[in-house]
Design a protein around this nucleic acid. Structure first.
Length: 870
RNA sequence: GCCGGGGUGGCGGAAUUGGUAGACGCGAGAGACUUAAAAUCUCUUGGGGUGAUCCCCCGUGCGGGUUCAAGUCCCGCCCCCGGCACCA
């Protein structure tokens, strides 16, 4: 008996597909396009483990399915290859990241090919290729010129282990997203991308996307839109006001003090001399604290400034305090404290004995308190819900929700309030103090700095706010032309486009300095350059871009990967983009997925892209854990490699098991024995074709399968086949691969058990629906049953016949009081009367009915009949 | 605390959206083949009622409810996983 020699078969067909180029996407084909994409991997030195291919195999199944459905499918793969591991490896071994990256990519690609993934390798991209990152830099300059990049020295999240700054999105629970080290603070100059300018657009766009609800929610929460008002509080003895943001303007009559964040710029200005020392000390202490410490503190702390503000509603003097429970980066960094209706303010007021005045009554019964006395309230905690206003002058008795608007309108008339929207989203810290990343294409020129600063340029308003931002506008100063980015960041000059790519120079040492400078800072002849505007001596920026930069737009590059005039040809973008279906891990919810949407929306506004959302449909694959239930990792020694499994069981058994093991989007442990099941399944099919009873039917059609000729079982088999086609088709579309495979197993079990024959044409249909899951195997058997030059993937996806699926004889369940007592085989469509008659004749039913009365009969057509008895 | 997703055999998981709970696979048990083992094949496999093939009872985290009928719907709990977390 011939054995299924998967080693030979897999190699043979992989070569065949490559030579025939049948998985190549065709630009501008008349067939409808379908762009299905995997999140491209970072090619680590460890290679792929069994968790990685789960998503790749799923998209491969869908890609095959869509091709056979007649779509022109784009299914590419590439490498997100900038990043820390390669650099850390270089520090240890001295091997240049370019070399180790190249080796890692070769390994990844080899592994992917072993699995038989049908990527169009002619479109392969690599973010570390200068021809690629040229365009990453080009896009960065677009942001810069549009005024969406600014340089600022600010305390940022700093990973002491990676020795680099991090974006907020890269800090997970106070720890570095990459290495898990506790994040500290460091104050260094940073390039910051103004993602906040797109907060509203990023939020709006979500509604239209077919993404998992969870991911959409996470993005929504991250952006954190809240509606409220900006309210101005006059400072006693000063000419200025302090603005606060609140969502509860209805509680303003209960605002009994203000709290400023220690970082608030006006703190020291308003502090009275006698409190100065204490306030200064508090500010210093806060500076030393890590964000995590600040958040973990249970007890609120703070100091009085000695200053007072006027509550614009009550016109009473209220004290101004400083506390670190007010965050500098949200709202205005100052709050009006309403202790009766905000738990944090309540705790603070309790501790420092500040007045607590209730202004929202839970039940509409009116209570009045005397405003002028510091009332000892009986409140145990703040009431944060809705209610009716009390102690609020002319607003008494008004429902809180209405008052929220009315009070703002009232204060607005006095010029003291404005409706406002606030976001949690913060700007994107874009500099990394490391070597292995895209160089930021900017130089610093002292001469230009002076020129711009002396000109006191009009579009830049107070606090660096841009007025009347004009897209790509050029500003002329002394015959030099500057872009908005250059005006906003005096002295920083863009590297001219024609000089891109600005390539990474060779360095002696990759070791990060740890001082906040990148290793590039040590290379004199690279750093020292001339200003492209005025020719004066200038210095290059030595920080590099974050890991995420290259992945913000890579899906665009696949469309036209070798274009050296543009990031991609417009016509090709119009044909292929956006991505129809995107698959990857959920861990990128507020990282890559948010950043890529941001860049897309910006490039759309710049009229570079013809679409404003990158990924129309998104699905996340669940994590595959080690058999011990923990995450796979080299250090835990529980990694399972696909290579060994493929050598032992074959790529197709591996692919099938990856899809069969459980629902695609749920995490699951790897079961080392599980793959035996899918291997046995393939063996079974192979034996059916290779050993048992080929024959010719009476109508001279080739047949396969068992030895019996029995019209009835033949029909049953045929029905099962069409049921299977239907199930597999629907399940692929719904990404329920596990049940699709189960139904194919059922079919094969029935084919084997019935010992009956199946026409070759029908068996071919089965091979076609199996092909996306087990491509080599299906291709081999396809060629065994048919002499052809064609690939099975050039076949059409089979249609199923609904009329064949419907049974003529069905099983009708007979119940007594809702419990199954018997069943009968009846003709489909049988009437209630007929069913009742048949059911009542049943011995078992008669037994159950003995001595009882039928109260009611429930009949569900073609399903059941239920006798309700007493 | 808030948001999102769950709880079904020894295990991974099915169940047409209210209609035969446990498909499919793993594991386990028994048997066949073999000198033997592995592989393969066949049968059994939720628990119980002292005899797998007849019959009955119980059973989808817990407690109630709606219904002829509940894993599925409603109310009240418990537990697990993921995310966010002083966001004014």
């Amino acid at each position: 008996m011939e054995k299924y020699d998967f080693k030979k078969i897999e190699k043979k067909w992989q070569k065949f597909w490559e030579e025939k180029e049948i998985f190549k996407a065709k630009d501008f084909s008349k067939s409808p396009k379908f762009y299905i994409l995997d999140m491209f991997p970072y090619p680590s030195g460890a290679g792929l483990h069994v968790g990685h291919p789960r998503g790749y195999i799923a998209t491969d199944v869908i890609a095959h399915y869509m091709r056979m459905k007649g779509y022109n499918v784009l299914h590419p793969m590439g490498w997100d290859a900038f990043g820390l591991p390669a650099e850390n490896y270089a520090i240890k071994t001295g091997i240049h990241p370019r070399i180790s990256t190249k080796q890692n990519i070769a390994q990844f690609k080899e592994q992917m090919k072993m699995i038989g993934l049908s990527y169009d390798w002619s479109r392969e991209i690599n973010t570390t290729d200068p021809e690629y990152y040229k365009w990453t830099q080009w896009i960065f300059l677009k942001f810069f010129r549009a005024g969406l990049v600014y340089n600022k020295t600010l305390p940022i999240n700093w990973c002491p282990s990676c020795k680099t700054g991090l974006a907020n999105e890269e800090v997970v629970g106070g720890k570095c997203e990459r290495c898990g080290t506790e994040v500290t603070k460091k104050e260094i100059p940073q390039w910051v991308l103004k993602i906040t300018a797109y907060a509203e657009k990023l939020l709006e766009g979500l509604d239209k996307l077919d993404w998992p609800e969870k991911i959409k929610e996470m993005q929504k929460n991250w952006i954190g839109r809240s509606e409220g008002a900006m309210i101005k509080f006059q400072i006693s003895n000063f000419k200025f006001q302090i603005e606060v943001f609140t969502t509860r303007a209805d509680t303003i009559f209960g605002a009994t003090f203000l709290v400023l964040a220690p970082e608030h710029p006006l703190v020291l200005e308003i502090t009275t001399p006698e409190y100065r020392e204490e306030v200064k000390k508090y500010i210093e202490e806060t500076k030393k604290k890590l964000d995590v410490e600040r958040q973990e503190e249970k007890e609120k702390t703070g100091v009085f400034t000695g200053a007072y503000a006027i509550n614009p509603a009550t016109e009473e003097k209220i004290p101004i305090w400083v506390s670190d429970y007010v965050l500098p980066y949200y709202g205005t960094g100052a709050i009006m404290a309403v202790p009766a209706h905000d738990q944090r303010d309540f705790e603070f007021a309790r501790k420092y004995d500040l007045p607590i005045i209730e202004v929202i009554s839970q039940n509409s019964r009116l209570k009045t308190q005397n405003h002028n006395s510091k009332l000892k309230t009986k409140l145990e905690k703040a009431y944060e819900g809705e209610g009716v206003l009390v102690n609020s002058g002319q607003f008494d008795r008004m429902p809180s929700q209405k008052a929220r608007e009315e009070i703002v309108k009232w204060l607005k008339l006095k010029g003291l309030a404005e409706f406002a929207v606030n976001y949690k989203l913060r700007d994107w810290i874009f500099s990394r103090q490391r070597y292995w990343g895209e160089p930021i294409p900017l130089v610093f020129c002292e001469e230009c700095k002076k020129r711009i600063q002396n000109s006191k340029f009009p579009p830049v308003g107070r606090a660096g706010k841009i007025k009347n931002l004009e897209k790509n506008q050029i500003y002329k100063i002394q015959n030099y032309e500057y872009s908005l980015g250059e005006i906003l960041n005096p002295g920083w000059i863009a590297v001219p486009e024609e000089e891109l790519p600005l390539t990474l120079p060779k360095v002696e040492k990759y070791q990060p300095t740890g001082t906040g400078e990148s290793p590039l800072a040590g290379i004199k002849d690279w750093v020292e350059t001339k200003c492209p505007k005025c020719g004066a001596p200038a210095k290059r920026e030595t920080n590099t871009m974050p890991q995420w930069a290259g992945s913000c737009w890579y899906f665009i590059r696949y469309v036209d990967p070798k274009n050296n005039k543009a990031l991609a040809d417009r016509k090709l973008m119009e044909y292929w983009l956006p991505v129809d279906f995107y698959v990857g891990g959920a861990e990128h919810a507020v990282l890559h997925l948010l950043y890529a949407r941001f860049w897309t929306k910006f490039l759309y506004d710049q009229e570079i892209l013809p679409f404003n959302e990158p990924f129309l449909k998104l699905r996340n694959q669940g994590l595959i854990l080690a058999p011990d239930g923990r995450k796979m990792s080299k250090s835990k020694g529980n990694v399972i490699n696909p290579d060994d499994l493929i050598k032992e069981y074959g790529a197709d058994a591996f692919r099938l098991y990856e899809m069969f093991m459980g629902p695609f989007d749920q995490p699951i442990s790897w079961d080392p024995k599980g793959i035996l099941g899918t291997k046995r399944f393939l063996e079974k099919v192979f034996q059916i074709v290779n050993s048992i009873h080929w024959g010719v039917a009476s109508d001279s059609k080739l047949q396969i399968g068992g030895s019996e000729n029995n019209k009835e079982t033949e029909n049953r088999l045929k029905r099962k086949l069409h049921q299977t086609i239907k199930k597999v088709t629907e399940d692929i579309e719904a990404m329920k691969f596990n049940t699709a495979i189960a139904s194919m197993m059922e079919f094969v079990n029935e084919l084997q058990n019935s010992n009956c024959k199946l026409q070759i044409e029908d068996f071919k249909k089965f091979l076609i629906i199996l092909a996306p899951f087990a491509p080599h195997f299906a291709e081999e058997l396809y060629h065994q049953i048919e002499k052809t030059e064609k690939s099975i993937f050039e076949e059409k996806w089979p249609e199923y016949d609904e009329t064949l699926i419907e049974k003529e004889i069905i099983t009708l369940i007979v119940q007594i009081n809702g419990k199954v007592r018997d069943q009968i085989q009846v003709k489909k469509g049988i009437s209630e009367e007929e069913a009742k008659e048949l059911a009542l004749k049943l011995e078992k039913i008669q037994k159950w009915l003995k001595g009882r009365k039928i109260k009611k009969v429930i009949f569900v057509k073609d399903r059941l009949i239920n006798f309700v008895v007493r």
